[in-house]
Write a protein that binds this DNA or RNA. Structure first.
Lengths: 152, 152
DNA sequence: TAAATATAATAAGCAAGGGTCATTATATTT
DNA sequence: AAATATAATGACCCTTGCTTATTATATTTA
């Protein structure tokens, strides 16, 4: 029998995104922007390219999300004083209020989705997923390393 | 500390889809069509609306996937003899050959992604996700039931 | 130090996956 | 018979992400 981890993880995360987007609709923010906000708050004043790497999306994909967050007054692009090509992303005060609201939605959606599991099982699940994620990241950076050692 | 199950499951399934789509590119099928094929093979001769419900997508979204699978000669729409509005979806012989090839890709991608976990841990992970999925399905059908008992 | 190369942000335009709303042809209920 | 519900689908839109190319700087190399 084949494993269905791929389908399962996709289906569950799809449900989470759908429910989040629906519940967050009045705020005007989507799950993708929410993800950017959370990672930005954990890496304040980073450059766009850094945040893109953290989010594992291409810089051009992030540009549009930042545009939206900037229009909404949650984020400001500050010129990097040391590199005139780059911007530093600043999380504005308004962002914290919005994020509090979005965390409530995110937590509620997640609790609903995970309610079939005991708290201990939820920890196990998260720990297993964290290990998968860490391993993937480690592998891709060792590949990058390998790539840089074998120039074209 | 907030749980990040939503982000984790999204990120991992996104990686799986990306890798699958890349590896399956020569076959001309995407992960969404692959998912439809697998669920159809487990529910042969069902109607489009049934398959859409199984896949948790809207019927109109499925229409396009079935169009592609039909063009590729993997699926045939047969008129339902009891309901002239409906089609029954038949998996053609060619589908089985293609699916064998796609299972190899899917299994390889999954093995790569899950390789940080011991086989036993992989089983635990799948079992936990299955329980989440089952619980969500059970809840949504009881909601439907409830809905039908309280007409608008 | 001038020239080649790399990098940060971004514009233009595309793909995949999914959705809403409306339509047509049947079924089912009233 | 008339009203309502349902299966498939057409027209068109959204979200998230991508590739390729451009501009303005930085950095490296010859």
């Amino acid at each position: 029998m084949h494993s269905k981890f791929g389908f399962l993880s996709y289906e569950i995360s799809h449900i989470i995104r759908q429910r989040f987007n629906k519940a967050a609709e009045p705020t005007g923010f989507t799950h993708a922007q929410w993800r950017a906000l959370v990672h930005l708050s954990e890496n304040q004043n980073c450059r766009q390219i850094d945040l893109a790497e953290i989010l594992e999306i291409k810089p051009i994909t992030l540009v549009k999300q930042i545009d939206l967050l900037e229009e909404a007054g949650l984020v400001r692009r500050n010129k990097d004083s040391e590199d005139r090509r780059a911007y530093r992303l600043e999380l504005l005060p308004k962002a914290h209020a919005v994020m509090q609201q979005l965390w409530e939605i995110a937590d509620a959606v997640e609790a609903q989705v995970l309610k079939a599991l005991a708290v201990e099982e939820q920890h196990t699940l998260n720990a297993l997923l964290e290990r998968i994620k860490t391993d993937i990241n480690a592998k891709s950076s060792s590949e990058e390393l390998l790539g840089s050692m074998v120039p074209p």
